[in-house]
Design a protein around this nucleic acid. Structure first.
Lengths: 215, 215
DNA sequence: CGTATAATTGACTGTAGTCAAACGACGTGG
DNA sequence: CCACGTCGTTTGACTACAGTCAATTATACG
């Protein structure tokens, strides 16, 4: 994200940024917390958790390398949802006040930041139209596709499969339904285990590029 | 939104802004269009439409008075979804280039804009956790609650009921299921017709404030 | 007042939720 | 190294909510 800054703007950055790792299943912050930092993800996945009216947990967004966490702290409101790592996550931390200061000086950083917000929105729409619509098998397939896209095009595609409970919280289903779906995919060799939690994934049988009706 | 500008900043605004109305069911712009303007809604509702993989239409967001439309044009990307009015909608139009120019001068406008983006994200999460989860009756009830909140607290609450097809596109259900639900609510006097498309709405029997389990 | 469009209702089907039990993987401590 | 316990996964039987298809009735608008 800070690639867009000029040399002079970068001068004051290095001392302020530190880089470190969160352990797996670490709660970065909880809904309601006031957060003082912004993070950019270098490696790993982070899930954003919200609660439904009946108290169930629902995963509403996934952040991946390159994404920015905690932008809402620029508005000094409380955080909207809980952020939790899904594996070991390597991040850069930048204090909010640094961003605020740089923001008025660098229009390019501003654009970059607006773009991040925009990405969040687009991803929310994607989530809504692909991961909460249709039969469960198709929702799970879309999720697998999302996970597969993180592997930057290597063949064969190998993904780290989240726990059934997490998948269920993403596609809005019960653990049992997810289990049946995933078990089926294993039988059909869509998923082939290569290591604990790690599967080779061949989504060939799913046709994501189905014809889109246009007006 | 422009209430935050100082007098000097406002000076160049008036000649650039014009105010007018869109007719009901008017397509403000379509997915893929490049849009040159930003709109603030003064009155009426605007729906954002996306398409699912099987070509069905899905309403992914509602914009209400005070909201800003077309912020993605600040990034000069194509628009993500189709925007369509739900009734007569009164708007202010501001050319994107004016916003861009003002943005570097007014930190308060910047904050206002970031807040708008943040609001969109929060609303996406709300949509996900309330309008796509649980049985259809509860989703519809949440939608009615949303619509009721637009009426700024007058009692009794009177809302303009969207067509079943629109409700279906919001809560991810079929027209028939929505019809059954709405028909039931009419029988139970949750909805009482007072004019065409207009109903008095008493959501007393629904308990939105159900206990939220906290960690 | 008549017609097009939307809403309602019925009968049937199918997907996924619920409840319950068995199985498996993994880590701990003996 | 093995036994045990915990947790996650799988599977079965049953139920219920919502989808599908089709016919009928109501509503809005010219």
């Amino acid at each position: 994200m800070f690639g867009v800054l000029t040399g002079k703007e970068l001068d004051e950055l290095p001392v302020q940024i530190d880089q470190f790792e969160f352990p797996p299943n670490y709660r970065i912050y909880s809904a309601g917390d006031v957060n003082e930092d912004v993070y950019t993800i270098r490696d790993g996945l982070v899930k954003a958790i919200a609660r439904t009216a009946d108290g169930a947990e629902r995963i509403v967004r996934l952040y991946k390398p390159g994404d920015v966490l905690g932008l809402e702290s620029l508005l000094s409101d409380g955080c909207q949802h809980t952020l939790m790592t899904m594996a070991t996550v390597s991040v850069c931390r930048i204090p909010t006040r640094i961003i605020k200061r740089l923001l008025v000086k660098s229009p390019r950083l501003l654009e970059q930041l607006m773009r991040q917000w925009q990405i969040s929105i687009e991803r929310a729409d994607y989530w809504l139209t692909h991961l909460t619509t249709g039969i469960i098998e198709s929702r799970v397939a879309w999720l697998l596709k999302m996970l597969a896209e993180l592997t930057s095009g290597e063949q064969p595609v190998v993904i780290v499969l989240p726990a059934n409970q997490e998948i269920a919280a993403i596609v809005d289903a019960t653990v049992e339904s997810v289990s049946r779906t995933i078990a089926n995919m294993k039988r059909e060799k869509v998923l082939v285990r290569v290591a604990p939690h790690t599967y080779q994934c061949d989504l060939g049988k799913y046709h994501f590029d189905r014809l889109q009706v246009v007006d």
